[in-house]
Nucleic acid binder design. Structure first.
Lengths: 243, 243
DNA sequence: CGCCGACTTGAATTCCTTCAAGTACGGTGG
DNA sequence: CCACCGTACTTGAAGGAATTCAAGTCGGCG
């Protein structure tokens, strides 16, 4: 670690270096990016659909989601994000945001100017490659969500969401797959799985009755990870985490 | 057009150049890629989930889809592909296929060795940038599919699928948005929307009764594009086609 | 001509939604 | 310290959208 190192980039760098090797110059180029720190409250919008933005946001603390809405007001969450996630890289390469980004808990953000990031991508092919891979992994997760929402029944679907979140928290070093913080409300889970909050509530209770999870206030413990994964039909291969 | 030009790459180049400018050297580098042509029949698998492949496939004629399956055998189509689509670029950058690729009609494929494509990406940053953008557009379509499958009712959902397919066919120059070939079976539509074939059948009939579409054998005519898009809640912004 | 796959139709059932009412809890101000 | 409030969560009952199952039609192809 040199004096140049900027601690806020470490989680991102850790994840990227698993996808593609980064050398010292790559790391330094990234950690020397200029940033603006902002703390936002739960439900704050970071990006709005249709917006043309000149910056990308790196999630430092807290949780966020991306979502889209139907004409009649239905809200569908399409992804959840944890600390270390670089949100909306596509904002950099595509002119217009096709979805909203919203904090689901109090969160700390580092804003990075698009122009600086673009310069980085041109100067550092390794970084560009790692970020490209990162966006491909994200696409893989979207595909799994289409499957999840399209073909799994309620219990399995919600269980799958929890398994994925657990696995990603674990991979990010934020708490093992068996006990972790669950920052989203039941309404958030409903909007991510395509159910009503009422039904999510009943299914969570069913999972408790089955003895596979234990619930605390906004925390969850997976009591029987093996059985949980079977109920969820969860196979982590699509997360492409095999370093 | 020089003697080097390889006609099979033209549709792809046309699409990519809308996303990011390509110069003559970029085009030549792409058209001089070595390819192996193959004709496959309907339902043939081009890639299997879990496979490690050393080649990418460019769809020249016919139609294909990508799909995943649940443990109990449910099949979910996550995308459809038309001539000119470069399938499974992520095969190039991620070690293992997380989904299947299957022809939904008789199709002609050009196989391209991964190593050659990787060399191209390193040598031609413009091409890499265009392909990255292409994969980001694809991710945007996945997000819309999550919304579609998660939050729209049957009639709207199926109508949305048809609108998207029409718009993409149109953009590829394969037939206007108002009359186009519909290569997929009702079972394919069911697997793409998360319904049963029976229900797809009923909803298509409902759309005919509503007077918004006219059906032929595996062809479709959108009789009232405006009303169709309203039923479908279709806004093409997510396709990022605004050149 | 006969077969097979794709499509069509109807009736019963199931899963999830809707609506409506209530409880638990954390925060705020008196 | 307690009363008040809002938000998230919980529960029950009725209704509806889509599935399931089963039978039948249509059309292309060998």
């Amino acid at each position: 670690m040199s004096a140049h190192d900027n601690a806020i980039f470490q989680p991102l760098l850790k994840r990227l270096s698993k996808l593609s090797p980064l050398d010292e110059a790559d790391r330094r180029a990234m950690t020397s990016l200029p940033t603006t720190i902002e703390v936002v409250s739960r439900n704050a919008y970071l990006v709005r659909e249709g917006a043309v933005t000149k910056r990308c946001c790196l999630l430092l603390r807290g949780y966020a989601c991306r979502h889209k809405t139907t004409g009649d007001g239905g809200r569908q969450i399409v992804s959840f994000h944890l600390p270390g996630d670089l949100l909306d890289l596509q904002q950099l390469l595509l002119p217009r945001a096709d979805h909203n980004v919203q904090a689901i808990s109090m969160a700390t953000i580092a804003w990075i100017p698009s122009a600086e990031l673009q310069r980085l991508l041109r100067a550092r092919p390794n970084v560009a490659g790692a970020l490209w891979r990162d966006s491909l992994v994200e696409a893989s997760i979207f595909r799994e969500w289409v499957l999840n929402v399209g073909r799994r029944d309620a219990k399995s679907r919600i269980a799958h969401l929890l398994c994925e979140f657990a696995a990603r928290q674990d991979a990010a070093g934020l708490g093992g797959p068996e006990r972790f913080e669950l920052p989203m409300s039941q309404e958030d889970i409903a909007d991510a799985t395509g159910f009503t909050p009422v039904h999510v509530n009943r299914m969570l209770q069913a999972l408790v009755t089955d003895g596979v999870i234990v619930r605390d206030v906004r925390k969850i413990e997976i009591a029987d990870l093996d059985r949980m994964r079977r109920i969820a039909d969860f196979d982590p291969a699509y997360l492409h985490e095999a370093a």
